[in-house]
């Protein structure tokens, strides 16, 4: 893994003169994920003008404004549908979506599963902080059962989504999960997802110490990072763990990596067939 100084990233990929400081709270993991994305793209040597970052609404969805790509900050839940339009019209562009647990799996759940089903070549980087941070801490489809949010003052009775399982069930061809603590692993997974031809998802468990952490007494940002270090178990270790010890653990690793016909390729073939048959 080639290391590049932070300063180069700042000047090469960020709108560093225009848009900083950012809106994220102290201790938020979004910056770590942004750094991982920048380093992964630098390794791939992608051209900024040929790269699009699309987002919906939420904390993570504020990311596109900071990066010097073709950027679109769209409507709540709709990022994947907007990205589908861009990718479909210009398949030669690299299109990624940055989204969150609420944006992608609650209001945007429909677009998420259908993009996975089509296997359209989008990379979805989903930052899962277990809560709606932008609106002040309401429960999301991934808020653990029993936890406190501003709209579950007596404890959350909702069962949770396993986002990676959801994506795999819908047909995603590259699915990986890691945490913000494992920043270099996140960088590696993001790089592989961006390179992957087809719908790819990288779920990154993140820390929201200011809202989720405070409501559920998870401690400060450092304590939450330590908890990720402790609870996120690699695939290999996961298989060796006895079942009674799996409770509260998070499986991290590349959960699926397979090749299936990609949507824009298939459409290009269809166009060729239709035009050839004239």
């Amino acid at each position: 893994m080639q290391k590049i100084p932070q300063k180069i990233i700042h000047t090469r990929y960020l709108r560093h003169r225009k848009k900083f400081p950012h809106v994220w709270c102290p201790g938020c993991s979004n910056g770590i994920v942004l750094g991982a994305i920048m380093r992964a793209i630098d390794e791939l040597k992608w051209k900024r003008s040929n790269t699009a970052m699309v987002s919906g609404i939420g904390c993570s969805s504020r990311m596109p404004v900071y990066v010097d790509f073709n950027t679109l900050h769209s409507l709540h839940g709709r990022a994947i549908a907007y990205a589908t339009g861009i990718k479909m019209f210009k398949p030669e562009m690299n299109v990624m979506v940055v989204t969150g647990d609420g944006d992608a799996t609650a209001i945007g759940g429909n677009h998420f599963i259908h993009a996975a089903r089509r296997n359209i070549d989008l990379t979805v980087i989903l930052i899962n902080n277990y809560i709606y941070g932008m609106t002040g801490g309401q429960y999301s489809p991934t808020t653990p059962t029993g936890d406190i949010a501003t709209t579950t003052p007596y404890g959350n009775i909702d069962p949770v989504f396993d986002i990676c399982e959801l994506a795999m069930g819908a047909g995603a061809t590259f699915v990986a999960r890691t945490t913000a603590y494992h920043a270099l692993e996140a960088q590696s997974f993001i790089k592989q997802a961006l390179e992957h031809k087809g719908f790819s998802l990288v779920e990154i468990i993140s820390a929201c110490p200011v809202i989720y952490g405070k409501l559920n007494k998870k401690g400060d940002a450092i304590a939450m990072m330590n908890a990720m270090k402790k609870n996120a178990v690699s695939l290999k270790a996961w298989e060796k763990l006895p079942e009674d010890k799996l409770k509260g653990k998070i499986k991290r690793g590349i959960l699926r990596n397979e090749i299936r016909p990609e949507y824009t390729d298939e459409y290009a073939k269809l166009v060729q067939k239709v035009q050839g048959g004239k």
Binding site: A52, V54, N70, L72, S74, L75, R78, A81, Y82, A83, T84, G85, I86, M88, F89, K90, M93, H111
Partner: peptide, 9 residues
């Protein structure tokens, strides 16, 4: 959403 995305492209 898709037509707005495509239009921007």
């Amino acid at each position: 959403s898709a037509i707005i995305g495509a239009s921007l492209a």
